[in-house]
Design a protein around this nucleic acid. Structure first.
Lengths: 169, 169
DNA sequence: TAATATACGTCAACATGTCTGACATAAAAT
DNA sequence: ATTTTATGTCAGACATGTTGACGTATATTA
């Protein structure tokens, strides 16, 4: 501990930046950012009788049109029984459409209905605004760093596949 | 910056980097990173009969020794009845210690017991490792950007207070 | 000092989202 | 023809959250 205490931990310019304190602050920042980030759609959905589970389904079906149930389960890491209830509600409410795959007629492919697309837009709007603000305030280089670290936080064995999926568009 | 369409969106060097796609990818990355990040302690705790709620309490009491109940509720954004159940278990299991504040004898100040400190260490270890790996791979500048963006994602009206608390040490 | 407000605990009832386990069906793969 | 896969569903349980109501000790204020 010679002159380390004089380096600014927050700039990350300290070669010992991997120290506990730096990391703990990252963990906490992530908690608060995520808490606020998900609170937006949570509040909207509660008024409609849906919850966070519904939002995740809407989000990932929106992002992955024609996804099948098994793949959706893998992403969400829940059981099919859990998904079943939520999915049934969304289908009943005409948010999500199920249709039989032509290639494999066992599979049910999921898409958002028009109503679902609309709801998705409403739900993601405040999140996009929040990100837009954060990105704007932080600047392009910070955004690049943000993405880089997030990628590194993802499980190594799935990272490649996830990144391919996300940036496939 | 005339030929914007040739800039690489992912480097953030594009002045139009706020576009939907860029933001959408950020939202997704955040989801996956957070999902994996919280899965570590989740798995450990399940074996001990605790859940994610217990982890959050352990974490924030650990980070805020002598926090009182009202403040903890504000952080967690749950009701005192919800907290009550979890807290009672943690006190019964000698993970958390409650004592009456000398300044205001209505308040119960919460701290981790030695056993609680030990458990906290076990729980946060894989998270710290995950962060250490991600930070190492991404480099100091990326880490600075990561933090900057996360800060921007936090609700504006609470940001200052949260940052003060996190970096107060 | 008396009245009120605050911090906390607790009981009850209920909603949601998750789980495990078991079983059924249709379709694909062997 | 048999087995495996993708999905759905029923039943029962648990974890975590909610509202609402009430009690108690202590602090604050009129």
């Amino acid at each position: 501990m010679s002159d380390i205490k004089f380096t600014d931990r927050r700039t990350g310019s300290n070669p010992l930046f991997l120290r506990d304190e730096e990391i703990r602050e990252g963990v906490e920042l992530l908690f608060y950012a995520y808490r606020d980030h998900v609170s937006d759609p949570d509040n909207i959905l509660r008024k409609q009788g849906f919850g966070r589970a519904h939002h995740r389904v809407i989000h990932f079906v929106g992002r992955n049109p024609n996804i099948n149930v098994a793949e959706l389960l893998k992403i969400l890491r829940i059981t099919k029984q859990s998904l079943g209830r939520v999915l049934k509600q969304l289908v009943d409410e005409d948010i999500i459409n199920q249709r039989v795959s032509t290639e494999d007629r066992r599979q049910r492919l999921l898409t958002l209905t028009d109503k679902g697309e609309e709801l998705e837009r409403i739900l993601s709007e405040p999140q996009r605004q929040r990100f837009a603000r954060a990105y704007r305030e932080a600047g392009p280089e910070a955004v690049a760093g943000f993405r880089k670290v997030l990628e590194g936080l993802i499980n190594e064995d799935e990272r490649r596949a996830i990144l391919d999926k996300i940036t496939r568009s």
